[in-house]
Design a protein around this nucleic acid. Structure first.
Length: 827
RNA sequence: GCGAGAGUGGCGGAACUGGUAGACGCACUGGACUUAGGAUCCAGCCCGCCUAAAGCGGAUGGGGGUUCAAAUCCCCCCUCUCGCACCA
C-alpha cells in the first residue's frame, strides 16, 4: 500500500478491472429481487457537464448500494441521439450529423467510464441506431392501425429558428424550449399522437404515483387542465343556426349579455358577410392573426374586439346578445366561442365597459347587493342567484347543478368536460430524426408502411441543406416508392418524428436491447419493469415524463407491456449553480468536469457533488468545497495506512459486552454510523450520510493513538475500518476498492454485503439528559438508561446549576421525557 | 393574479414523529511540527455583556398564538425561487 493517496494512480486501474470482470452486468435472476435504477439518458451534445455528473453520481450511489444489498440491479446508460444540435453542428463544422453524434457518444462514453459509474455497458443503446428506431416505426404503425395516430392540418407552433413544428409542451411562454427563440403560429399539416384519448387515465393516475414529487404531479395536473361545466347552444337571431360555447359558470347564464368568438373561429367571416361591419371585422381578424403569439397572450394585453353585426338569443332569457370577435378568446380552447357575463367575469367586465354593453347582476354576495353601474370589477365569488327566473334565491354552487339539469332537460345544452391538453404533434420538418413510416399514394391515399418493409432507414449519404432545411423531400431515392396496396408509384412521408418519441420508451428497451423479434421481449421486460427509481432534472416535469406515461399506456393497450405506469419513484435533482447562476456558456461560469477529474480525480468530484447539497436542491459549486472533499479522502487513506499494522488478518467474533470502554465506544460509534448511513441513503440524504462517515473518521483519529495493539484491539480495528470502507464505497468507489484490497480482500468491495448494525453495539448504557427550568437549559446529566423517572427527577433537582434557578420558587410541575430531558416548571 | 416550495452563523448546509439549535464541510483565527509550507496535526469559531473564564441574556425572515417546551404546529405579514397564466 502506498503511503499517499493518489487518485490518478488507482482510478483508471479499477475502472478496467470492473469492466473486465463485468461486475455491473445485469442478470435476470428470478431468485433475487430486482431493482431498476435509471437516470435520464443524455443528449450527446459533446461532453458531460456538471449537471450530468451530479445526476449520475446520485444514481450511482443508489445502484451500488442496492447491489450490495443483494438486489439484482439494472443500471443502464444510452443516448438520446436524434435532434437539432447535430444538424446545426453539421452546418457549422461541415461534418455529417451522424458522424458528429457518434463522435460525441464515443467521447462522452469515455467520460462516463472515467467517472466510474456502475453501468451495464452491454445494454447501451443510441436512439439514432436503426436497430432502435425501426421498432419505434413498428409501434407507430400499430398506433396508426388503432387510430392513435392521425394526420391533420392545424394551426401549429412553428419555430423559425429551428425551422420546425413544436408540440404545445415544447413551447414555454411563447418561447421554443430548445433554442429560446420566438414561436409563431402556422397552418400546417402534420401527424399527431392521440394523447387526449388517455387524458382521463393520465389525470387519474396522478394520484396513484405516491413516489413522485408533489410539484411534478401538480404541474402535470395543471397541464392536463381538466375543467367541468356545460356546453350550451345559443341560437342565432336569424334562425340560421347556433353558436355553441363551453362554460364552467352555467350558474351565471342569466347574466350573459353578449357572445365572443375567437378571431380564428370559422363562423366569424361567415356571419359578418354582407353586414356593414364586414370590412372592419376582416381588418381586425387580419391584424390579430399577424400579432405574434406572445404579445397576444400577455397579461396586460388590451382587450379589443369588433361587433359582427349579428345577434344570438340567450336561451334562458330570450334576450338579444350581440356577437363580437375579440383578441382574448382563444380558438384552441373549448369551442373557440364564449358567452360573456360581464358582472361575474373580469375579462368580460373589462370588455363590456369598453364597448358599453349592458350588464346584469345574477349573483349577489352574502348580505349585499350589487349595482352594475357602480361595480369596478367583476364579482367572481360565491353567492345567491338573482335575476335568474326560477333559480332566484339558490346558492350558486347548487345552481350549477340545477341549471345543468335544466339545460339537459330542455335540450339546450349538456354537461361537458374540457381539457387543456392537446394531441401531441410529432411531425418535425427535420432531417436528423426517425422517418415516419407513411406512404402517400394518389390512388389509395395515405397508407402505413407494411411491417415487413421496415425499417425505413434514414439515408446517411445526405445531410442538411445549406439553409438548414431537410434534404429528404428532394431526395428521389428516398421519396419515390411504391404503394403497399396497389403497387403503383407513391411518395414517402419526409417528416421525421419528434425526438421525444424515442425517449418515451427507451427505458423499456434497456431491458432487452438485443431483442430482434419485436420492440420488446416480454419476459425480460416483465422481470425489470417498471423502473424502481428514476432520476433526472425537473425541466422534464411535463414534457418527457408525460409523454412516457402516455406511451406506456399505449404500449399496454397494444399488448406490448404489462403495466400502467413506467416509473414508480421519481427524484428530480436540482441544478448546478456557480456564483449564484446556472452554469452556462453565456454566463462564462462553467466548471468542466474534465478539469475536476484531472485535478482531483473522479472520487472527489463525485463526493463533492453529493456532499454539498441534498439532491433535490440546487448545488452551488465551490472550489474550496471540492478541496475539502479531497482532503477528507486523503485523511481516510492515511488512517488506513497508519493502522495497517494494527489490523487482524481475518474476521474474529466480537462482543461489545466485554470490551474495554474505549474499544466499546469505537464499535458503538461505528455501528451507529452504519445505521445512520443506511437510513440516509434510503431517503436520499447523501450529504448527511457522508457527514456521518466524516464523524466516524474524526472519532477514529482521536482514539487511534490511545489504543494498544492487542489481538482483541486488532479485531475491533479491523471490523471498524472495514465498515468504514464499505460505507464509503457507493460514494467513492475507487478509493474504497483500493483500501478494501489493502485490508486483505480479493473480491471487489461491491461483492461485500452491505453491513448491518449490531443492536447490542448501538445500545447506550448512559445518556445525557437535559435539565431545563421553565424551558431553559440549565444542566446536562449523564444518567444510566435504566434510571427510573423518580430517580432522574431527584438528580435533576439536586443539581447546583438547577437549584440556583428554583431557589425560593415553588415547583408546580415536572416534565419527564425518558432518555432525553427533565423540565422543571416553577412559579 | 393562481398554485407549489423555501427563508437557520461569514458561506454550503444539519436538526427523523415538537424536546441540547447550528452536525458535517468551507472560510477565518491561534498553536504544534518544519529550512519552508497553500502539506499535516491540535484547538477556537452564532451574537451581546465580561480582560478572560464561569455566568447571564439574545437568536432559526417579521409579528402574534398554542404548549411545560416551537426552526418544527396554527394565524397574519414580508422576501425569494419555481410552475401556470386572458383556459371561459
Amino acid at each position: 500500500m502506498k503511503e499517499r493517496y493518489d487518485p490518478h494512480h488507482i482510478e483508471e486501474q479499477w475502472q478496467r478491472t470492473w469492466e473486465q470482470q463485468k461486475l455491473f452486468q445485469a442478470v435476470e435472476d428470478p431468485k433475487r429481487a430486482k431493482y431498476y435504477l435509471l437516470e435520464m439518458f443524455p443528449y450527446p451534445s459533446g461532453k458531460l457537464h456538471m449537471g450530468h455528473i451530479r445526476n449520475y453520481s446520485i444514481g450511482d450511489v443508489v445502484a451500488r448500494y442496492k447491489m450490495m444489498q443483494g438486489y439484482s440491479v439494472l443500471h443502464p446508460m444510452g443516448w438520446d441521439a436524434f435532434g437539432m444540435p447535430a444538424e446545426n453542428a453539421a452546418l457549422e463544422h461541415k461534418i455529417h450529423p451522424a458522424q458528429w453524434t457518434y463522435d460525441n457518444i464515443a467521447h462522452m462514453r469515455s467520460q462516463l467510464k472515467r467517472m466510474g459509474f456502475s453501468y451495464d455497458w452491454d445494454r447501451e443503446l443510441a436512439t439514432c441506431d436503426v436497430d432502435y428506431y425501426k421498432w419505434e416505426q413498428l409501434i407507430f404503425i400499430r398506433m396508426y392501425e388503432r387510430g392513435l395516430v392521425y394526420r391533420k392540418k392545424a394551426l401549429v407552433n412553428w419555430c423559425p429558428e429551428c425551422q420546425t413544428v413544436l408540440a404545445n409542451e415544447q413551447v414555454e411562454g411563447g418561447i421554443c424550449w430548445r433554442c429560446h427563440g420566438e414561436v409563431k403560429k402556422k397552418e400546417l399539416a402534420g401527424w399527431f399522437f392521440k394523447i387526449t384519448a388517455y387524458v382521463e387515465e393520465l389525470l387519474e393516475y396522478c394520484d396513484r404515483l405516491p413516489g413522485w414529487p408533489e410539484r411534478v404531479i401538480t404541474m402535470q395536473k395543471n397541464w392536463i387542465g381538466k375543467s367541468t361545466g356545460a356546453e350550451v347552444a345559443f341560437p342565432l337571431e336569424d334562425g340560421t343556426g347556433a353558436i355553441t360555447v363551453f362554460t364552467t359558470r352555467q350558474d351565471t347564464l342569466f347574466g350573459a349579455t353578449f357572445m365572443v368568438l375567437a378571431p380564428e373561429h370559422p363562423l366569424v367571416l361567415e356571419l359578418c358577410t354582407g353586414k356593414e361591419q364586414e370590412a372592419e371585422v376582416r381588418a381586425f381578424v387580419e391584424r390579430v392573426r399577424r400579432q405574434d403569439l406572445i404579445a397576444r397572450t400577455a397579461e396586460d394585453m388590451e382587450k379589443e374586439g369588433v361587433f359582427l353585426g349579428t345577434y344570438c338569443i340567450n336561451p334562458l332569457t330570450n334576450a338579444r346578445m350581440p356577437l363580437y370577435t375579440a383578441n382574448f378568446v382563444l380558438m384552441e380552447y373549448g369551442t373557440g366561442a364564449i358567452m360573456a357575463v360581464p358582472t361575474h367575469d373580469q375579462r368580460d367586465f373589462e370588455f363590456a365597459k369598453k364597448y358599453e354593453i349592458p350588464m346584469i347582476v345574477v349573483i349577489r354576495p352574502p348580505g349585499e347587493t350589487l349595482d352594475p353601474a357602480l361595480m369596478t370589477e367583476a364579482y367572481t365569488e360565491d353567492g345567491v342567484l338573482v335575476n335568474s327566473g326560477p333559480f332566484d334565491g339558490m346558492e350558486n354552487r347548487q345552481a350549477m347543478e340545477a341549471i345543468a339539469d335544466y339545460l339537459e332537460e330542455k335540450g339546450i345544452g349538456t354537461r361537458a368536460v374540457n381539457y387543456r391538453l392537446r394531441d401531441w404533434g410529432i411531425s418535425r420538418q427535420r432531417y436528423w430524426g426517425a422517418p415516419i413510416p407513411i406512404i402517400y399514394c394518389d390512388r389509395c391515399g395515405i397508407r402505413a408502411v407494411r411491417e415487413e418493409d421496415l425499417p425505413i432507414v434514414l439515408p446517411l449519404d445526405v445531410g442538411p441543406k445549406e439553409n438548414g432545411a431537410s434534404p429528404l423531400p428532394d431526395l428521389r431515392a428516398f421519396v419515390e416508392t411504391t404503394c403497399p396496396v396497389c403497387g403503383g408509384a407513391a411518395r414517402r412521408e419526409t417528416d421525421t418524428m419528434d425526438t421525444f418519441v424515442e425517449s418515451s420508451w427507451y427505458f423499456d428497451r434497456y431491458t432487452c436491447p438485443d431483442y430482434d423479434q419485436g420492440p420488446l421481449d416480454r419476459e425480460r421486460l416483465q422481470y425489470w419493469m417498471p423502473v424502481d427509481q428514476y432520476i433526472g432534472g425537473i425541466e422534464h416535469a411535463i414534457l418527457h415524463l408525460l409523454y412516457s406515461r402516455f406511451f406506456t399506456k399505449v404500449l399496454r393497450d397494444l399488448g406490448m407491456v404489462p403495466f400502467d405506469e413506467p416509473f414508480i419513484n421519481l427524484l428530480t435533482q436540482g441544478m448546478v449553480i456557480k456564483d449564484g447562476a446556472k452554469m452556462s456558456k453565456s454566463k462564462g461560469n462553467i466548471v468542466d468536469p474534465e478539469d475536476m477529474i484531472k485535478r482531483y480525480g473522479a472520487d472527489t468530484t463525485r463526493l463533492f457533488s453529493l456532499f454539498a447539497a441534498p439532491p433535490e436542491k440546487d448545488l452551488e459549486w465551490q472550489e474550496e468545497g471540492v478541496e475539502g472533499g479531497y482532503r477528507f479522502l486523503h485523511r481516510v487513506w492515511r488512517l488506513v495506512y497508519e493502522l495497517r499494522g494494527s489490523l487482524s488478518e481475518g474476521p474474529s467474533p466480537i462482543a461489545t459486552a466485554d470490551l474495554p470502554p474505549e474499544l466499546g465506544e469505537m464499535r458503538h460509534k461505528a455501528h451507529k454510523t452504519i445505521k445512520k448511513v443506511t437510513e440516509d441513503i434510503d431517503r436520499f440524504h447523501f450529504n448527511t450520510a457522508i457527514a456521518a462517515i466524516m464523524e466516524l473518521v474524526n472519532h477514529l483519529y482521536q482514539t487511534k493513538d490511545s489504543i494498544e495493539a492487542t489481538p482483541r484491539t486488532k479485531a475491533v480495528w479491523q471490523e471498524v475500518v472495514e465498515a468504514l470502507v464499505v460505507l464509503l464505497s457507493p460514494f467513492v468507489p475507487h478509493i474504497a476498492e483500493e483500501l478494501w484490497e489493502a485490508l486483505g480482500h480479493k473480491d471487489s468491495v461491491i461483492k461485500a454485503p452491505w453491513p448491518r448494525y449490531d443492536r447490542e453495539a448501538i445500545t447506550e448504557e448512559e445518556v445525557i439528559v437535559v435539565v431545563q427550568v421553565n424551558g431553559k437549559l440549565r444542566d446536562r446529566l449523564l444518567i444510566p438508561v435504566s434510571a427510573k423517572e423518580e430517580k432522574v427527577k431527584e438528580m435533576a433537582l439536586a443539581s447546583p446549576k438547577v437549584r440556583r434557578h428554583i431557589e425560593g420558587k415553588e415547583v408546580t410541575k415536572t416534565i419527564f421525557v425518558p432518555k432525553k430531558l427533565v423540565n422543571i416548571v416553577c412559579a
